[in-house]
Design a protein around this nucleic acid. Structure first.
Lengths: 349, 349
DNA sequence: CTGTTAGCGCTTTCAC
DNA sequence: GTGAAAGCGCTAACAG
């Protein structure tokens, strides 16, 4: 009788399908049918259920549905950090694609801690998610392969190292992007073009290095090993490396930093040494993160389609979850040179 | 007999508690007890279970556990966007706090779309999550109050508008932060201090405005209404507003932008007008997002403890979920002035 | 069309 | 100590 509008049934005060069924005078099966838009229901029954649903505000419990259906509608996403525009943009792209699939993202920042990454992944596999998207995962190729063999579905966005062929990946065209960058510099008359790389062994580093060398070779420029310095993709690393290069007896006239953070470090170092950009030194970055557009001068850089990277990774994952054959296990997205004001013709002083 | 190491039981190829029980020759209840570290189990049984678990790699299905336990260990987090360092830092803080609680975050970017925010929230409530953290939600105070009355647990980080007293919020001390900013400018000799605000009606805007006016009044400076221009917290808005101010017959010697993005816009506008910062114009921001530190010159700004904002919000939520009385329903975090190089004494030309 | 029933995988009384 | 059994809320196969 006193079925209140704010029904209490233990937890959360939410109605169960059973209660709706009783209230509507039908079985739970019928309620389920109505809720799920099945057609094989009489108008009378449907109306009764709908009325109860409306008046009492019922909505199906997703956890229960998930248990019954065998999937959760949740996708795990691991990322080194979220507070970094590089990753944030990938996340945004992935989030958008997931939303379109009516799926949700369980976000797991790893903070570059291997242990955490492993435990996070473990948890994600425990029936919490249907699959995962791993952004720049630091797990070893072996660990990742094991995960794959274990039957867990996931795809890697921006792989760090060379992985087992069978695990799907999405990455940018590092090598051609780097070539294009160097060609731009060459076309401006630069010949002493330095490179500040990321950690050796990372795909991004090695591939960009390949592009850098290739472009130089193609232009018949003798590569100077002293002009290539390894760094870590952070601004501080960039200033250190740049200082080193600027203090060379015969310093470069252009520096190609392997990501925007490094490039920003270079700009800071240049300022410290009184070197003007782009008059005395051209600086070129990679990624085209937001920061590239707001520094002074705005940074010329190679744009990675980061949001697209996230979207594409989700696409691959979704198809995999639907057990569709994935035609392309390894997608490579095109990069594009964005010329701004940090590069200029050499001033053959 | 032929119990393979890679057991197949239908979905996902994962062992169920039932299978473990059979393999170990005990009941599911016992397995459950062992898994959950109960003590009332004989060493013999425990050993048997553990052995099976080890050899076959069993781990409990979280979804099922959740259904049974009545909670999911998941917390929904809505945010306008993730690709914005302001929000990204809050997310990082929240993520960290959640991780410490062994909870996971279901991230839901709303893209400022009201409909999406509503539907997202609806879904979150459908038993998918135990509660939620709403970052700068754009839902109306009424909608939020209704949600609260509906029994859903959530807390607001950085409320946009004034809300129902009963919904927990965490925000920064906008007013005192703004005062401090203006006092800094005053101490440098500035008297014509302009303000570029966010949208009127937003708490952040109104409170900072209050601080701005208060500081001016306290110093006996006559406020000039023409020096306050409303904007939108975006860089483009900042350049527009700044252009307006710089073109005034009697332009300000300092501009207090109500967030860093606006401030960056101001710097761009100044550059366009040939106005030097800080020699000709002091610029001060709010937030202290990453960008503030990399622009030229580095921006003096009011630091909001954004990561802390996220952490604190999670704390409030967790306590609420544990049905603990929350002592402070509305937490306000201190801000701090970070002096860098975009502000300098007036050059009484 | 509709209700009954058997799970989904796990936890938890409640007896033995 | 340990197991049987009753759910958690929902879906789906199977009879009517």
């Amino acid at each position: 009788m006193s079925s209140s509008v704010q029904p209490e049934n233990g937890r959360g005060g939410r109605l169960t399908i059973r209660q709706v069924a009783d209230l509507a005078g039908v079985s739970t099966a019928t309620v389920s049918r109505v809720i799920n838009g099945r057609t094989e229901v009489s108008d009378r029954a449907r109306a009764a259920v709908l009325r109860v649903v409306r008046e009492h505000g019922y909505s199906t419990n997703r956890t229960a549905r998930g248990l019954s259906a065998g999937h959760t509608g949740l996708v795990g996403v691991t990322t080194p950090v979220v507070h970094h525009s590089y990753f944030a943009v990938i996340l945004d792209g992935a989030g958008e694609a997931l939303y379109e699939q009516d799926m949700r993202m369980v976000l797991c920042p790893t903070h570059h801690e291997h242990d955490r990454e492993v435990s996070l992944l473990e948890r994600l596999m425990q029936g919490t998610t249907d699959g995962a998207l791993l952004i720049l995962p630091e797990e070893s190729p072996d660990e990742l392969a094991a995960l794959h063999d274990h039957g867990y579905r996931f795809v890697i966005a921006d792989p760090l190292k060379q992985l087992d062929e069978r695990v799907p990946t999405v990455s940018a065209a590092h090598s051609s992007g780097a070539s294009e960058a160097v060609e731009h510099l060459l076309s401006l008359g630069h010949r002493r073009i330095a490179a500040i790389t990321g950690p050796r062994g990372w795909i991004a580093t090695e591939e960009r290095l390949r592009g850098y060398r290739g472009a130089l070779a193609a232009a018949g420029v003798m590569p100077d090993p002293g002009l290539v310095v390894e760094s870590d993709f952070h601004a501080e690393g960039g200033v250190e490396a740049a200082l080193l290069l600027l203090d060379l007896p015969d310093p470069p006239t252009a520096i190609f930093a392997f990501n925007d953070m490094l490039a920003i470090g270079v700009m800071q170092a240049a300022r410290r040494r009184g070197v003007r950009i782009p008059e005395d030194l051209s600086v070129l970055g990679f990624d085209d993160t937001f920061e590239a557009s707001i520094v002074t001068p705005p940074l010329t850089t190679v744009r990675q389609p980061l949001a697209e990277l996230g979207r594409m990774a989700v696409n691959l994952l979704v198809r995999q979850l639907q057990n569709q054959r994935i035609e392309a296990l390894h997608v490579q997205l095109e990069t594009k040179l964005v010329v701004r004001e940090s590069t200029a013709p050499t001033s053959r002083r």
